[in-house]
Design a binder for these strands. Structure first.
Lengths: 136, 136
DNA sequence: ACTAGGCTTACCAGCCGCTGGAAGGTCAAG
DNA sequence: CTTGACCTTCCAGCGGCTGGTAAGCCTAGT
């Protein structure tokens, strides 16, 4: 099948499919006589695998590792879990970062009347955070 | 003062300071006779403002808006609040996105024994998420 | 047979927010 | 006078695409 159909079936845009191929994430597909890429159902499966991994926030490099593990009949489940757990830790870290940003911003926003007056506690804090709600 | 000192006082690396200047976030500083940038205490204040804004996750463009509002004596507090509230919404959205990733991954990780066996529910889900813990 | 349009190809450029490195000028201390 | 730390500019690259260009191909309708 052509790239457009593969895109449709996998949910990955054609451009992105070519990109994945170019960075070695998707192995080069076969080519039809006219030079068009020719995708098999298995290629589409791989694309879906990639899409799922990316959707869970794994980096392209990590998805590559996971794909290698998938292809490796001798792989140990623990290797997969290690990557997943490391990703979980990433997520937790980012969530905490966001939470502290949110808390600081919420405090500031609450102090801000949000009317037409020019005095703004948010800007005041930005210029001199010493007395503000703390670090973000 | 030189850029190194300004970096030290503001916590923003020299390279980044030059970058901020190049994209119009920090107005061009004065120059000493030797061509070196010459920072005033006010320049450092602006750098800290930028740093605080970036630390709260505002984009460079948003920080630019906030800086413009700061400089504008006639600004309305509501304009500032609008930007802050929009950033808060961004944060909430990202946190939810991360939370759903975390939930899906945690479910998968729990199902994964993490031992030396090759059968891995995580990889199985990646290849065929239909029966898995759902979308991320 | 011809044309219109939609698909495909490859390539280069740009997005964001830096960060690293090269190649050179300047300055203070030894 | 040299060393080393600082400063200058500019160009390139990170990740992960995405857009645009120019060209080739393929199919349906006239």
């Amino acid at each position: 099948m052509n790239i457009g159909r593969a895109a449709e079936l996998s949910g990955v845009p054609s451009k992105t499919i070519r990109y994945y191929e170019s960075v070695g994430l998707l192995p080069p597909t076969g080519r039809a006589a006219n030079g068009y890429r020719d995708f098999t159902a298995q290629d589409v499966d791989i694309l879906r695998f990639i899409s799922r991994g990316r959707g869970l926030g794994f980096s392209v490099e990590q998805v590559n590792e996971l794909l290698s593990l998938y292809r490796d009949r001798e792989r140990a489940c623990s290797d997969v879990k290690r990557i997943a757990v490391s990703r979980l830790a990433d997520i937790e870290r980012k969530m905490q970062e966001l939470a502290s940003m949110r808390d600081a911003l919420q405090t500031l926003a609450q102090q801000c009347p949000g009317d037409a007056r020019p005095e703004c506690p948010i800007l005041a804090d930005f210029m001199d955070p010493v007395h503000g709600p703390g670090k973000a």
